[in-house]
Simulated assay, not measured.
Amino acid sequence: MKLQEARIAAGLTQEELAARSHRSVSMVQSIENGRRDGSTKTLMAFAEALGTTPNVLLYGVDHTNRTSGKEVTR
């Protein structure tokens, strides 16, 4: 998961992301360090808190192509 990169790009600390996503700081740390995988619900909460999509958190790019045939990167 590209959580740490997305969090840093958004200018948030682990504590701020935890608060915005209603998750614990230890959850954020565990996922960022690869010790734990998050559930789909957690992935969605992180994406919403970071103003991005789950695809960006999983793959680093948004492959949803919602508005055009072009790949969107964030």
Rank of each mutant, 00 (worst) to 15 (best):
K2Y: 15
K2A: 00
K2S: 05
K2R: 14
L3Y: 11
Q4C: 06
Q4K: 13
E5S: 10
E5D: 15
E5K: 10
E5L: 03
E5F: 02
R7F: 11
I8P: 05
A9R: 14
A9H: 09
A10M: 07
A10K: 12
A10V: 08
G11V: 15
G11F: 03
G11P: 10
G11E: 04
L12Y: 09
L12T: 06
T13A: 05
T13Y: 10
Q14P: 02
E15C: 01
E16L: 12
E16G: 04
L17N: 03
A18W: 10
A18P: 00
A19L: 15
A19F: 13
A19E: 15
A19M: 10
R20D: 01
S21R: 00
S21Y: 04
H22R: 13
H22Q: 12
R23Q: 13
R23E: 13
R23G: 00
S24D: 04
S24H: 08
S24N: 02
V25I: 15
V25A: 11
S26I: 14
S26F: 04
M27P: 00
M27H: 06
M27D: 05
V28C: 02
V28Y: 03
Q29T: 15
Q29F: 11
S30F: 14
S30Q: 15
I31D: 09
E32N: 02
E32Q: 03
E32R: 02
E32V: 08
N33G: 14
G34F: 05
R35C: 09
D37Y: 14
D37G: 08
D37V: 12
G38H: 02
G38F: 05
G38A: 08
G38E: 03
S39Y: 04
S39I: 07
K41E: 10
K41Y: 06
K41I: 02
T42K: 11
T42Q: 14
L43P: 01
L43N: 07
A45V: 00
F46M: 01
F46K: 00
F46R: 00
F46I: 00
A47W: 04
E48L: 04
E48A: 07
A49P: 04
A49D: 03
A49V: 01
L50R: 03
L50D: 01
L50Y: 09
L50W: 12
T52A: 00
T52I: 08
T53C: 02
P54R: 07
P54A: 11
N55L: 01
N55M: 04
V56L: 11
V56T: 10
L57T: 02
L58K: 03
L58A: 06
Y59N: 09
Y59M: 04
G60L: 08
G60I: 08
V61P: 08
V61T: 12
V61Q: 03
D62A: 05
D62L: 04
D62F: 11
D62V: 06
H63I: 13
H63L: 13
H63F: 15
T64H: 09
T64I: 02
R66H: 06
S68Y: 01
S68G: 12
S68E: 03
S68R: 03
G69W: 01
G69Q: 14
K70E: 12
K70Y: 10
K70V: 07
E71I: 01
E71H: 13
E71L: 08
V72E: 12
V72C: 13
V72A: 08
V72G: 00
R74A: 15
R74I: 10
